[in-house]
Design a protein around this nucleic acid. Structure first.
Lengths: 197, 197
DNA sequence: GTCTATAAGCCGATAGAC
DNA sequence: GTCTATCGGCTTATAGAC
């Protein structure tokens, strides 16, 4: 694969990510993608084989990079584990807002490609559930339903209303660190965790 | 307005709600809607004036029913107010899953159709923010950032990952009442609320 | 590898018959 | 009020020139 070819393919993938995320799959045309990527209209068919194929290629490039391999494999204390999860996930979400939006859309549309995403991301969520359960067993957390509690935690972690509620915001932009701190605090409090004094 | 006319309009609206929710606005054609409603292709133009218009009409019928009118207008204690909000919103979301999906779709896509929804729902969220702020001022709640805290609360309230995480569920179906109780408990704990003994 | 030109089909919308 | 037939526009995809 030559450099120029690499370059165009990459530009097309980047443009596809951006536009699919912002406008949805159906709301995006290959013409828009090619224009955004400064490439000819025919090159999506040439490099990927069509609109569906470039979407699939996009998903696959995402999962070729490890996201949370170490979080899943490391043997962490429930509290420390949740802290690592909150931090890593929050930073990832701030690094890749378009990707987050893309996932969210697929999740809601419940399309056929959702299974691929499930397969790759579920180890992360299984580990998260295990941390909650272990924390409860050890008396660190207090809650009644694991299913409900898990959904509360993921609701906070994967919140997707940022832009929607933007007009209500009053405090301006804040640092990621403050968000991570406050989120950790809120979740651990919700779990009735009482830090050792 | 004659009965038959009412009937067709209603069937079209119901079909539109179902298909827009499941396939998105761009992924749904007026032909599909009319087929689902057992109506002729031309009737969407005739009754509503076009695809965009039937969407708008759909949103407006939703908001013609009072959802949270009383919640917004009633002068409630912060804690009681949040409890009412959690209950009403949760019950509404269980009654109208398609509508929830529709909102979530549009929220993420951040399209031009979002403004209509914002206009109708924002009084609810403004009131929610006021309750949080008032609760903090009265020493009932403890948190640092109102913006962050508001996003945590809405993340839980508007969680959209139910179907996605379904395969991880272990506790089977549970009653709405239990969900409301647990959610209230988690949120108030996250806000550091300590019930008077 | 890149481009133009064009094919073939679906889209939303509507004029006009009934 | 309902329907058929059709229009113009835009879509994806590709054949073929360079």
């Amino acid at each position: 694969m030559q450099p120029a070819e690499q370059d165009v393919k990459m530009r097309l993938l980047q443009a596809a990510k951006k536009l699919f995320a912002r406008q949805g799959f159906d709301g995006t045309t290959i013409r828009q993608i090619c224009e955004e990527a400064d490439a000819n209209v025919a090159l999506i068919s040439y490099y990927f084989g069509g609109k569906d194929k470039i979407f699939q290629a996009l998903i696959e490039t995402v999962f070729s990079q490890p996201l949370a391999k170490d979080f899943v494999s490391r043997d962490l204390d429930p509290v420390e584990g949740l802290k690592v999860l909150i931090r890593e996930l929050t930073l990832f979400r701030m690094r890749e807002p378009d990707l987050v939006r893309l996932f969210q859309q697929e999740t809601i549309l419940n399309g056929p490609r959702l299974d691929v995403m499930r397969e790759h991301k579920f180890p992360l969520w299984i580990k998260t559930r295990e941390l909650l359960e272990e924390g409860r067993a050890r008396g660190l957390f207090r809650f009644r339903s694991l299913d409900f509690t898990f959904s509360f935690v993921t609701g906070i972690l994967l919140d997707s209303h940022g832009p929607y509620f933007q007009p209500l915001s009053t405090e301006g932009e804040q640092s990621p660190e403050r968000l991570i701190e406050d989120m950790t605090d809120f979740i651990l409090s919700g779990l009735k965790y009482e830090p050792a004094t």
